[in-house]
Design a binder for these strands. Structure first.
Lengths: 250, 250
DNA sequence: ACTTGATTCTAACGTTACGTTAGGTTTTAT
DNA sequence: ATAAAACCTAACGTAACGTTAGAATCAAGT
C-alpha cells in the first residue's frame, strides 16, 4: 500500500506525473481515502514499471494505455509500428543534418560572412536528391562505370572528413592566390590537391581531367562544386607546373 | 503589396501561421489598414522564405527570430549548435530503435505470445551498453583477438539481417525438436547452423566450440543469447552427427 | 484527544506551433 | 449601394507534464 509520494519516490517518478496518469486513465490508484488521497498496491507498482519501459522506447501515453488495458494491438504489431515511426523520424533528422552540414561546409568553402550571404547562396532546395538529376546529365558524357564512381565522390553535406580536407586546402589556396606557381608553397598545395584527386578518382587522372574540363564546358555544370574562378586558375597552373617538374607522365 | 491570404498562398503557408508569426514578432506586416488588416511587402516575402528554410532544418521559431533580427548568433554557431541538437536526438532514436528491435527479436526467438510474456522476459535494462560489462568477462577466458571478434557477433537488437536468419533457423529447429538427428531434415538444420558459425567465427570452429562450452559453464553466461535447453541439445547432437558423417576433420 | 508538520488535494497557468470554431468587421468587386 | 470574400480577435484544442496557490487530509508525537 503506497501513497502517491511513496510510489513516486519508489519508481523515480513525480507526484504530478502520477496524477496526470490517473487523470488520463493510464494508472488509476487502487484505493482513494475519504479525503481523496490516492493509494496504490504492488500491482500498480509493476504496471508503472511497464509504463516506464514503453514510454522510454517512444510510445505515447495514449498508445500505452491501449496496449496495456485493451490489448487490441499485439505486442509485435505495436513494436513494429513504433519502429516505423522512429525510422521516419530518423530520416527527417538525417535530412535536416545533411542540410545543415551543407550550409556549414558551403559557408567555409566560400567564406560566407553572415546569414544574408548564406541565404543568397542557397540554391532553391539544398537537398541531395539532386544527385538523381545530375546522374542523367553524367550519362551524356561518361561511361556507366565512371558515373558509378561519381556517386561516391565527396559531396557538400556529407558527414565525412574528406570535405573538411577540401575545405582546409581551398582556404589555404585562397590565402595564397598571389604567390608564384613555382614556389614550394604553391607546389605543396598542388601536391595536396593531386593527392585528393588520386583518392577520389582511384588514380584515374585522365578521368579527373575530363571531369574538370566538362564541368567548365557544360552550361549548368555537372553538379560538382564550382570553385571561384581565381581558385580554378590557380589550381590549373599549379598542377600543370607540378606535373611538368615531376614528369610523372601526365 | 500582399494581403495575408495572398502571402499565405504565394508562400505555401497559412493565414493562421502568418498571424502567429506576427504575434510572436517573427514576421510583422509592413502595413496595417485602418480596419486592422495586415499587408506585406516584397521584403516580407523574402524574409518568409528565409524563415521557412530555417524552420525546415529544425530551428525553433524563437531561435529563428533571434538569428534574423538581432544576429547575436553567427550563422556558423547557430548551424553547429543545431547540428548538435539533431545528433543528440538521433542518438535517442537509435537507442529506442535498438530497444524495440531487441524486444521484437527476443519475441521471435522465444515465441513470446503477449505483453505479459515480453515484460516478464525483459532484463532490467534492455540496453546494449551491457557489452562493456561482458567484455570484462570475456577477457577472463579469451584472447584479445577473440574478444575483438565477439564485438562483431550479431546481437539481439542489431539492425542487421543476420539475426533474422538465426530467428528463422531457431524457429525451424523448434518445430523439429523431435525428429531423428540423422534425418536429412535435421542435418539440413545442422548445416545451416554451421554455416552461420563459419561466418560469425570466420571459420574458427574451435573458438566457436570453446564459446559454446564456456557459455554453459560460466554462471551468468557470457552475454550471448542463451537458447532453450531443448534447442541446445538438438543443436549439439545434430552438429556432432553432421561432422561425423561429413568427416570434415572437426 | 489535540497539535503540528508533512503530505496531498484541485485548480490553473505555462510550454510550442499551430488547427479549428465562432461571431463580428473590413475590403473588394460588381 | 450591395453582397461576397476576406479578414479580424478570442478562445479552445493538441501531449506531457512543471510550477504555483490555497485549502484539506493524513500521520506521528505529546
Amino acid at each position: 500500500m503506497y501513497s502517491i509520494g511513496n510510489l513516486a519516490k519508489l519508481s523515480n517518478s513525480t507526484v504530478r506525473t502520477l496524477r496526470y496518469y490517473d487523470e488520463i486513465g493510464l494508472l488509476t490508484p487502487s484505493q482513494l481515502s475519504e479525503g481523496g488521497h490516492r493509494y496504490y498496491e504492488e500491482q500498480d507498482v509493476i504496471k508503472l514499471q511497464y509504463i516506464k519501459i514503453l514510454k522510454e522506447i517512444g510510445f505515447s501515453l495514449i498508445t500505452i494505455r491501449e496496449m496495456l488495458e485493451h490489448q487490441h494491438l499485439s505486442h509485435k504489431d505495436a513494436l513494429t509500428m513504433q519502429l516505423k515511426v522512429l525510422e521516419i523520424e530518423k530520416e527527417r533528422i538525417e535530412e535536416q543534418s545533411r542540410s545543415i552540414r551543407y550550409l556549414l561546409q558551403l559557408s567555409e568553402f566560400e567564406e560566407l560572412a553572415n546569414w544574408k550571404d548564406v541565404f543568397d547562396r542557397i540554391p532553391m532546395n539544398p537537398s541531395s536528391t539532386n544527385t538523381e538529376v545530375y546522374e542523367r546529365i553524367w550519362k551524356n558524357y561518361f561511361s556507366k562505370e565512371e558515373v558509378q564512381l561519381f556517386k561516391d565522390l565527396p559531396k557538400i553535406g556529407d558527414n565525412d572528413e574528406t570535405i573538411q580536407v577540401y575545405i582546409s586546402l581551398i582556404n589555404d589556396i585562397r590565402q595564397n592566390l598571389n604567390i608564384d606557381i613555382t614556389s614550394s608553397k604553391a607546389q605543396d598545395l598542388a601536391s595536396r590537391y593531386i593527392e585528393l584527386l588520386e583518392k577520389d578518382f582511384k588514380g584515374d587522372f585522365q578521368l579527373a581531367e575530363k571531369v574538370w574540363n566538362k564541368q567548365k564546358e557544360v552550361k549548368d555544370g555537372l553538379g560538382f562544386y564550382q570553385f571561384d574562378p581565381a581558385i580554378v586558375d590557380f589550381i590549373e597552373k599549379a598542377i600543370v607546373h607540378y606535373f611538368t617538374v615531376n614528369a610523372k607522365g601526365q
